[in-house]
Design a protein around this nucleic acid. Structure first.
Lengths: 344, 344
DNA sequence: ACTACGGCTGTTAGCGATAACATAGGTGAT
DNA sequence: ATCACCTATGTTATCGCTAACAGCCGTAGT
């Protein structure tokens, strides 16, 4: 009664193969495999058995086309290698886990053009939502996102205009806050050490806020040093050495991230410099790494995990297709003074 | 002559919209957008203009279904947070960039079941190839991969049987090599400090090779300490403290990764322990971080970038569909003695 | 002038699934 | 016994795009 199985063993299987093997219609197989609609227990078992025996893997491409539904969420981030985005990813995955949605990551390397093309590629797969780092995008990218008809969440930063929703912290405010704390502790000759990346808008905004507070107190940066590429820890050491060499009277080093801050801290300890007495230090991000250092670096956590979670929640909530207007969620980082700022 | 544009502005655009807007057939639009087949210059421009004006984004789902081609490569890795896989990813992205192929990442958290389901999900999108970390998978996962009819590359490890191709190093050999070097330097009371993860097969194989060399020299591990979760740097400190406390006569600490090794090193330096005179240390991976430490930790690089590149090359090469038999590429890590093993 | 051919465009038929509706039995209420 | 109704299954028509082939036109060769 069954057809002879003279089919090409290389050919990939379809619903039809399973349906023939189990003697029911393709539709019923589809129902079983998706757990949707009523199917009798005996049929269900027969179908599952056949599917398993054949090693059938559904074709989601066809499924998505037919159902106009895709369980993918695009996540566009600048980099995977700096510790901060993986943590956002963790928050996203965690939250999406229970929703049937799945994150798909794209990396832009801080290039707006690459970001545009990554967004284009992703949208062409018609995801259920998009999470994009930052508020700065090319004109075209913004337009695509706005038109896509799906929930868009821009994360990390809220200083600017969101396409739809946004979850993040104010980096400007974070910079100010750190400046206040440093000034309150009595430091006055302050240097900045950071990345050279022209498209790291968040670092830029922090510095901006930072400098503004300084200037409000009649101060300017005593020195500044930039780097790009290479081992951040090592760069932190080198930059710190350079700054302290060049400006021996500097009494505070403000780093654009914890990794170079940690390098600077190690350098100071090596040199026997009194921290935080003679020189204070502070970074940004609150990375786990800091816990293992000989002394705890002052920092400000960027709420990375929480940002990922909230962003994913927004996507998941809108999933059922009620196009609600975008919401902007501001999170507030806490200052962790650590051991590298004088206590007042 | 043109239909009144009374269409729902929310509706997502299709080829038909562009075709109507530019006055040519859908097929011609498709040809223009894919740069395939002959299209006159004037038509091409008209179409591109229309597509741009409308903000049309092609539907790759439909495209993939029709053409039976998907430009995606699935990459399945255990984790994003430990520095080693992001680097593999970098090698992969880099190499895939010129091929029109695009990596899609899935994370398993070292869980075989999760790995199986990630693989299933990915295969259901019919990617052009798969890159999977490790050689150990569930029965079902192996079967799916083998049946998929696409190039499969298992990366990081070559001690075992590959489903198709493999690119990696022998962790067993790496463990042996490190043991030889340690013994050659005269250390005899050796402790191991590592992760508790039952599914980190590569760490297990390294330890296995390591212990075998010890036992060939009539030795066994003097102590061992395991951890899971938390800040690796901090854990490294804590574990090291514990071991040195418990077994004060230990003269070498072999760590399963550089991060905890670095923590251990910092601890020893804090305590003023003579490294490498009284106690030697070694890690594994060759992470960039080490460059910034006060002293360079002995390690062995895992060829991560190169592994990513070679794996991607294999996928790209097979892309045109000649199902060549699998190849196994062994890379050879080099021992970097650093400053934490006595020179002989 | 006739044929051949290459450049350009259109037509037709799926790709493999699912939504929506249709149908065959059984069940319970009246 | 009749009808309404629910369960379990099948049928039909897309989804948006591309492969494959078909057609038209102009130019060049003979």
């Amino acid at each position: 009664m069954t057809k002879p199985p003279v089919i090409d063993p290389r050919r990939t299987l379809t619903l039809r193969d399973v349906s023939e093997a189990s003697g029911v219609s393709e539709m019923t197989v589809s129902r079983v495999l998706r757990n949707r609609g009523d199917v009798s227990e005996t049929t269900r078992e027969r179908v599952l058995e056949a599917a398993r025996a054949l090693g059938y893997v559904p074709n989601k491409i066809a499924g998505a086309l037919a159902s106009q539904r895709v369980n993918l969420v695009g996540v566009v981030i600048p980099s995977l290698s700096n510790m901060v985005f993986p943590e956002v990813m963790t928050g996203i995955s965690e939250t999406l886990e229970d929703t049937g949605l799945q994150p798909v990551v794209g990396v832009t390397h801080y290039s707006p053009e690459r970001e545009e093309s990554v967004i284009y590629e992703m949208l062409s797969w018609r995801p259920s939502g998009m999470i994009v780092a930052g508020l700065e995008h090319t004109e075209a990218a913004r337009a695509m996102l706005a038109q896509a008809g799906i929930p868009i969440v821009e994360v990390m930063d809220i200083d600017g205009t969101a396409v739809d929703s946004a979850v993040g912290i104010s980096h400007d405010r974070a910079g100010r806050q750190m400046a206040e704390a440093i000034l309150a502790a009595g430091y006055r000759r302050i240097a900045f050490l950071g990345t050279m990346m022209p498209h790291d808008h968040r670092a830029r905004k922090r510095l901006q806020g930072f400098e503004e507070v300084l200037s409000r107190h009649g101060l300017t940066l005593a020195d500044r040093e930039f780097y790009s590429g290479g081992s951040a820890l090592l760069k932190g050491r080198e930059m710190t050495a350079a700054v302290l060499d060049r400006s021996p009277d500097v009494d505070f080093l403000y780093y654009s991230n914890d990794m170079i801050g940690a390098g600077g801290l190690l350098h100071c300890l090596d040199r026997g410099i009194d921290v935080p007495g003679k020189v204070g230090l502070a970074g940004f991000n609150g990375v786990e790494l800091l816990d293992g250092l000989p002394r705890k670096l002052a920092t400000m956590d960027a709420c990375r995990l929480e940002i990922g979670r909230r962003a994913a929640q927004i996507i998941a909530a809108k999933h059922p297709d009620g196009i609600i207007g975008g919401e902007v969620i501001e999170l507030f980082p806490t200052l962790q003074p650590g051991d590298t700022i004088r206590r007042v």
